[in-house]
């Protein structure tokens, strides 16, 4: 019997929780989470980390190994992962009940800074409104959106509903 992710592309709660670092690290500032669960021949993330915190792969099919303790949360990896599977979470950003998440976004038109957008979960369901803190356009053509979200949804929000085309 095929597993949930094999059937739907949506990981289980256990898989998702396993991407988080320890509490101490979470309290220190932004960190990357990598939602890559399948051994496929793919390695651009390794070279994307300017600090070398994504370990070189022995075999190109290996799953990425990120040193989350050392990760600076720079977010360079987000736009370079072809799978759009890397996100930055910053639980120290904003007020007590808020957090920042940075996600890849490849839809035109782009939202603008300070826009309120509809934040979605991994199944495309609406979770909450989010404020766009920054729109970061990279040279790979993949935009990174910095979103202010309710802290309780850091494990849920992974996308933004594309805006209607003009």
């Amino acid at each position: 019997m095929a597993s949930q992710i094999e059937r739907t592309g949506v990981p289980t709660k256990e898989q998702i929780e396993s991407t988080l670092p320890g509490d101490e690290r979470r309290a220190k500032g932004p960190y990357a989470v990598i939602e890559c669960w399948q051994e496929i021949p793919c390695d651009p993330c390794v070279a994307s980390c300017p600090f070398g915190y994504i370990a070189p792969m022995k075999n190109i099919n290996d799953l990425p190994k990120l040193d989350q303790e050392s990760c600076t949360g720079c977010g360079n990896c987000i736009a370079l992962c072809p799978g759009l599977a890397i996100f930055i979470i910053d639980e120290t950003f904003g007020g007590e009940d808020e957090a920042m998440i940075r996600i890849p976004h490849e839809f035109a038109p782009l939202p603008e800074k300070e826009d309120i957008v509809r934040a979605l979960d991994r199944e495309g369901n609406y979770v909450a409104d989010a404020e766009v803190v920054r729109v970061q356009k990279g040279k790979s053509g993949c935009t990174v959106l910095h979103l202010l979200i309710p802290k309780k949804f850091i494990l849920d929000i992974r996308a933004v509903e594309p805006l209607p085309m003009r």
């Binding site: 739907t8 939602e35 991994r122 199944e123």
Partner: peptide, 23 residues
């Protein structure tokens, strides 16, 4: 098939767009 043939990350991208995958 009873499962997605392509890479799961590609499936995740379209799941986030609420496109159902009917195996």
């Amino acid at each position: 098939l009873d499962r997605i043939g392509g890479y799961w990350v590609h499936a995740s991208k379209i799941a986030r767009l609420k496109i159902p995958i009917l195996t």
